[in-house]
């Protein structure tokens, strides 16, 4: 029994953290005068109740895989990139604009090209916090938060000034058909993006497990002075990991534009970048862990909407649960104490 426990220690802690978060959540639901059973059953039904809801859950999982991976990649080098939201906006914006202007290209060139452009836009946005952290030690949490505000403002400015569709809604025109990701199930908005996400998970997993560069980045994250002693340029590794992280966050925006919205719209995100923090923390910064955590939070996001619509319970409960999950996972000693009792 103890042996099994030891082997799956991390998993058991994460699971306990989730259960605890839901328990605290139910106290809040109850105190606010709602039925806990009604709330959680509406949540469950909304996330998994029928095929349509399930595809919605998968659709919400995809950006969370990217933003969660982005945070996890930063963590590998010891950096906490909470700028995923801004990097995602830049990625979405660049992808939409590139797709609109390069509409003469055939799909098999256009799709990978605008994906990469979206990723690079994210990279550009994460470069500065990485560079400043390496050069001056400026805390990346503060700088990435500021870059979020700047990123959302700048995309909205550029949109309104140069690229707005001729309508009252602040959005671009639709991107060409050739740049859209094909749907897996008709009318579901669940597209090939899911395979791109899984492909990126595999690549990142291999990168950190099998390549020298990935190993170097992790060494910096674990012990910067030891890494320096071993001849690794830790500054370079930090900037690099921030840029990879930003690239992946940019892909979140790119795939939303290519698969779901088919255009750039201001304020399109329900906070995927921030939920990515909870995803990475719960997934213990492991690529496959991120997949499961993203699915959980994708389900919460989808179910939360149903809960609000039909049970009239504010969906901000999901934000509460995210915060609790992060706090509980960050404090394994608390869980250890609880489990021992």
């Amino acid at each position: 029994m103890i042996k099994i426990f030891k082997k799956h220690e991390n998993f058991i802690y994460s699971l306990t953290a989730i259960v605890l978060a839901f328990l605290v959540g139910s106290v809040l639901i109850h105190l606010s005068g709602f039925s806990v059973i009604k709330a959680y059953s509406a949540l469950f039904d909304g996330a998994f109740g029928n095929v349509f809801n399930l595809t919605q859950t998968f659709m919400n999982t995809i950006p969370l895989i990217f933003t969660g991976l982005a945070v996890a990649i930063g963590f590998k080098s010891g950096l906490f990139n909470i700028g995923g939201e801004g990097q995602m906006y830049l990625g979405a914006f660049a992808t939409a604009i590139a797709a609109i202007y390069l509409n003469f290209l055939p799909g098999y060139i256009l799709i990978p090209l605008v994906l990469i452009i979206g990723g690079l836009a994210g990279s550009i946005w994460s470069f500065l916090p990485g560079y400043l952290k390496a050069k001056t030690g400026a805390h990346e949490v503060v700088t990435t938060i500021m870059m979020n505000y700047i990123g959302i403002l700048i995309t909205s400015y550029l949109l309104l000034k140069y690229f707005k569709e001729n309508s009252p809604i602040p959005q671009t025109v639709l991107i060409p058909e050739s740049a859209r990701l094909p749907e897996l199930i008709e009318y579901s908005r669940l597209t090939w993006a899911i395979f791109i996400a899984i492909f990126v998970i595999i690549i990142i997993d291999i990168f950190f497990k099998r390549t020298k560069l990935g190993y170097k980045i992790q060494t910096v994250g674990e012990n910067r002075s030891a890494a320096e002693y071993a001849g690794i340029n830790s500054n370079k590794m930090m900037v690099l990991s921030m840029m990879i992280s930003g690239f992946v966050a940019g892909l979140a925006g790119a795939t939303i534009v290519m698969g779901v919205l088919h255009r750039f719209i201001t304020n399109f995100s329900p906070g995927y970048g921030f939920t990515g923090i909870a995803v990475a923390v719960l997934g213990k910064n492991k690529p496959w862990g991120v997949l499961f955590a993203a699915f959980l939070f994708g389900a919460l996001q989808t179910g939360g909407i149903t809960m609000q619509l039909f049970a009239k319970i504010p969906m901000d409960l999901m934000v509460v649960i995210q915060g609790l999950v992060i706090l509980f996972v960050a404090a394994p000693i608390l869980i250890k104490k609880l489990l021992r009792k």
């Binding site: 809040l28 606010s32 906490f80 909470i82 949490v141 921030f274 923090i277 909870a278 923390v281 504010p314 901000d316 409960l317 999901m318 934000v319 509460v320 649960i321 995210q322 915060g323 609790l324 999950v325 992060i326 706090l327 960050a330 404090a331 608390l334």
Partner: peptide, 20 residues
Amino acid sequence: ANHVVAGVGLNILLLGITTW
């Protein structure tokens, strides 16, 4: 708890609770 992670977790939690 890691100070940075706990701090960000706290912020998200309080954003959720106050909006709720």
